[in-house]
């Protein structure tokens, strides 16, 4: 395991994370189904977690704060998905759609 850092520079992990994040952004911008938007948000959260863990491993191995951060990110993501899906179910029951463009009751 110790040899990994000499063979793979930190930048490789950062570029992978940037690509995954941009894919997530594309998904959030194009998908109109609320559940699929949540999936793209999960991709973006994972990209951020890769950054955290890579920085923890490369720049401050003794403190490993990044790993603790990633654990909290996963916890909050679980809470977020549970709550978001409850809201989507409620919207679906009231309005019969999961299309975010049709949920425009607050729009003038």
């Amino acid at each position: 395991m110790e040899a990994v850092a000499q063979q793979i520079p930190l930048e490789h992990f950062l570029v992978l994370s940037a690509i995954l994040f941009s894919i997530g952004v594309y998904g959030v911008l194009t998908r109109r189904n609320a559940v699929l938007i949540i999936m793209s948000v999960e991709l973006m959260l994972n990209a951020a977690s890769i950054n955290m863990v890579a920085f923890a491993a490369y720049t401050s191995p003794a403190a490993f704060t990044g790993i603790i951060f990633a654990i909290f990110i996963i916890t909050i993501a679980a809470a977020e998905v549970g709550l978001a899906l409850a809201i989507i179910l409620r919207i679906f029951r009231n309005r019969g759609t999961a299309n975010v463009d049709e949920v425009n009751a607050l729009k003038w």
Binding site: S22, I23, V25, Y26, L29, T30, R31, R32, N33, A34, V35, L36, I38, M39, V81, L85, I88, L89, F92, G96, T97, A98, N99, D101
Partner: peptide
């Protein structure tokens, strides 16, 4: 997520897959 997909199955599923502004989204990402 799969449960939510199952519970919100609707007829307009196909047209909610990709929004009209997808070329802009490609450029942005």
């Amino acid at each position: 997520l799969l449960f939510a997909l199952m519970l919100t199955r609707v007829g307009d599923l196909e047209e909610t897959m990709v929004g009209a502004q997808w070329p802009l989204a490609v450029v942005a990402s």
